[in-house]
Amino acid sequence: MMIFASSMLKRVTCGKRRTSPPGRGCRQTWAFAGAALAIVGGLTAAAQAAESDTSPGLRNLTSAPITQVYMSPAGQDTFGPDQIALVPGGEVGHDKILGLIGIAPGRYLLRVTDNTGRVCWVRNVTLEANQVVSLLDKDLTDCDP
């Protein structure tokens, strides 16, 4: 993509015989180059959105905003990174959805921390592609105040 764009911008033809170095004249050619870049950028964004649509998600229906979510495949003791670390604001409020990154469909154990610092466990959460699982207060077990 960048090779195509840079070769287009090196030298452009204006009219029948006149050529113009970059930065001078030929508005039509520059408009074409900009439109081509915008189309390719739009297609890339659409592909990324389609890919992220297959990821599972968690909807926070608990009474407090969630500030950390660590996940471990059922039967294992290894937890992945905090799923909320990249969320703007650092928390997932009530009735908001957290898109899970790098999580394959399957059964998981969740370690959840809310904005008061309370740590709770959510056991046997089944995640499927393209589905959002709701977390309720009744799902939170073995909470440490």
Rank of each mutant, 00 (worst) to 15 (best):
I97S: 01
V12D: 00
C26K: 08
N124G: 08
Q68N: 08
M71L: 06
C143T: 03
G80C: 02
R107D: 07
P73N: 06
T19A: 06
G102T: 03
M8G: 03
M71N: 02
I66R: 04
N124Y: 07
A31P: 04
A35D: 10
S6T: 02
V87T: 07
G23H: 08
Q76T: 14
T126S: 15
P21D: 01
L9T: 13
L109M: 13
S63R: 10
M2G: 13
V133A: 15
L58C: 04
I66P: 03
V92C: 06
I39L: 15
A45C: 13
V87Y: 03
L58I: 12
T78K: 15
G117A: 11
R18I: 09
T13D: 09
A33I: 13
S55K: 14
D144E: 12
G80R: 02
P81M: 02
S20D: 09
D53A: 15
G117T: 07
P105A: 15
I84Q: 02
V122S: 01
D142L: 08
T13Y: 12
G23Y: 09
D142N: 12
C120V: 05
A74N: 10
V87I: 15
V125L: 11
P88A: 14
G80W: 01
G102K: 07
T19Q: 10
D144Y: 11
S55V: 09
T13H: 14
I84A: 03
C120Y: 06
T19F: 13
G90N: 07
G102P: 09
A46W: 01
T113K: 07
Q76K: 13
V69A: 02
R107M: 07
L127Q: 03
V92W: 03
D95C: 10
P21N: 02
D137K: 09
T13E: 13
G15H: 13
P73I: 06
L86H: 14
S52E: 13
D139A: 12
T44W: 15
A85L: 10
V119W: 04
T141A: 14
S20I: 12
R24M: 15
A35I: 12
V69H: 04
N130D: 14
P145E: 15
L86Y: 00
V125I: 01
W121S: 06
T126I: 14
E91C: 11
R11E: 14
L110Y: 00
M71C: 08
E128H: 14
P81G: 04
A33N: 02
D114L: 05
